[in-house]
Amino acid sequence: MKFIIALVVSVAIVFCEHAAAQDHGSTKAQQALSLIDVDLDSAEEMIIEAISDNPHSAKDHFYCGRIMGRQASDAFFSALSYAKKSLACLQKAVALAPKNVDYRKGLINFYLGAPSIAGGDKQAALEQVNVIKQLDSSQGVVVELDYYRKIKELLTLEKRLAHALTADPQSAIVHYQYGLLLQQTGDYNRAQSHFVLASEQGENREIAYEALYQLGRNAVFAKDFISQGTAALQHYLTIENSTVMPSKSWAHYRLSQLYTLHSDNTLAQKHRLLAADTDDKVLLNLLEN
């Protein structure tokens, strides 16, 4: 359960940066967030004070959701208590800023990631999806696709993707999501085609960049498209990563796998060493095997 709550925390707050334009929040709340990786207990005390002083700031409550969520991920006996506090803060942020799509996205991710005992609720998540569709139809399409992917209703997801592509054949996010679905089901050839199309669309640079990473990753799974995957990852390494994109260490790891498939052991070892420059425990574990 602790792992699940930690995952919830990580995904529930990735949308906070976009929300900042509408509500700057209090200085004290910003200071509290800055302590999250330094002194979590002090961050908790400070965010409680910030909310007491500034109870109508949606962003302060959103920060509260992040800090309480981190406490949940680090706690043991009090993990559920902190998770519920995190959820309450996220819900309050949405109540204070009901038209803010990004806060609702965070709430959806909590509902889908948390166990029911901690507030997880698929139906509540779907209700938020439907609200977002009314607030912003373009973002609603993306959120709905993400919803069905996360609850693993793959047949429904494929139908929604096909419908979305009919409506907008050039949509990078839809091609990207379609690629992920096909990759998940082992249809690597079709997945590669959709990742190529996503990488070529310019209206969403972050999705285009993530598609580059997936071109390399999919080539590893397919044991094919080696040159295309290598070129995509080399390009990916030249761009500036956002915090929600795969790290450059992961790109180096995928390159090492592709060079191994290509029987270029020298370059494979070079990129394995570059990949090891990370604190990512999952990746480090893979590199040890």
Rank of each mutant, 00 (worst) to 15 (best):
A6K: 14
A6L: 05
L7N: 13
V8W: 06
V8P: 00
S10P: 00
A12W: 01
I13D: 07
V14H: 07
V14L: 11
C16F: 06
E17I: 11
A19V: 06
A21T: 11
K28F: 01
Q30C: 08
Q31L: 11
L33R: 15
I36C: 09
D37L: 12
V38T: 15
V38G: 05
V38H: 15
D39C: 10
L40A: 09
M46N: 06
M46L: 15
I47N: 08
S52P: 04
N54M: 11
H61P: 08
A72Q: 09
A75P: 09
A79S: 13
K85P: 00
C89K: 07
L90Y: 09
L90T: 01
L90A: 09
Q91D: 10
A95V: 12
L96S: 06
L96K: 09
A97K: 14
P98H: 10
K99T: 12
K99D: 13
V101E: 09
Y103I: 04
G106Q: 03
L107W: 06
N109F: 03
N109V: 00
Y111N: 02
P115L: 06
P115G: 04
S116C: 00
I117A: 04
I117Q: 04
D121M: 04
Q123T: 08
A124F: 03
E127V: 09
Q128F: 00
V129T: 02
L135S: 06
S137W: 02
V142N: 07
V143Q: 08
Y148Q: 02
R149W: 12
K150C: 01
K152G: 05
L165Y: 05
A167F: 01
A167D: 10
D168R: 11
A172R: 01
A172D: 01
I173L: 01
V174W: 00
Y176K: 06
Q177A: 02
Q183W: 06
Q183K: 12
D187L: 08
N189S: 09
A191N: 03
H194P: 02
H194T: 03
E200I: 03
R205V: 12
A211Q: 07
L212Q: 09
Q214M: 13
Q214R: 12
R217E: 09
A222R: 10
A231I: 11
A231L: 13
E240H: 14
K248T: 06
K248C: 03
S249A: 15
W250L: 07
S256T: 10
S256P: 07
T260Q: 14
L261Y: 13
H262W: 11
D264Q: 10
T266G: 07
A268L: 06
A268S: 15
A268V: 09
A268F: 04
H271G: 00
A275F: 06
A276F: 04
D280T: 03
D280E: 04
N285M: 10
L287P: 02
